[in-house]
């Protein structure tokens, strides 16, 4: 049987800072541990990946998220970038949500590897463990 690196798919749906952070944390550590990680950013999660959201720190937060911002810890963008630098982690924006909002890739922080549809994402993550946040 063909051997391949274990694969993880992380689907980020929510704009809640805690969910984005938890998904990014699992993805980045998985990447550093030798897994191939593909992250699909869709629906409201995309809003938090916009450059203007970072400029104004416009995130939806609960108790822990507020404290994360107050303590200025590295956020999900930094975790994802570390995962990219230290292993194989790819990030894709959802074509549907981008189209609906008329957002362009250049509106987003510079971590994306492209804007794709679900069919492509399913193709690249076949057999992967899936985490949805």
């Amino acid at each position: 049987m063909e051997q391949q690196a274990p694969s993880l798919a992380v689907i980020l749906l929510s704009e809640d800072l805690e969910k984005l952070h938890a998904g990014a944390l699992v993805g980045s550590v998985a990447s550093m541990s030798g897994m191939t990680v593909n992250v699909f950013v869709t629906m409201n999660a995309l809003k938090s990946f916009r450059k203007d959201s970072f400029e104004t720190t416009d995130f939806i937060t609960g108790t822990i998220g507020k404290e994360m911002l107050a303590k200025k810890i590295p956020l999900f963008d930094s975790l994802l970038q570390e995962g990219k630098d230290m292993g194989e982690l790819n990030i894709y924006g959802c074509a549907l949500a981008m189209d609906i909002m008329d957002w362009q890739e250049e509106d987003m922080i510079d971590v994306f590897d492209g804007v794709i549809g679900v069919t492509k994402f399913l193709g690249m993550t076949q057999g992967a463990t899936v985490i949805t946040m």
């Binding site: 944390l25 980045s28 550590v29 550093m32 590295p74 975790l79 570390e82 230290m86």
Partner: peptide, 9 residues
């Protein structure tokens, strides 16, 4: 996981 990340680097 900051310390782990620093170690990995």
């Amino acid at each position: 996981p900051g310390p782990l990340m620093e170690l990995v680097k």
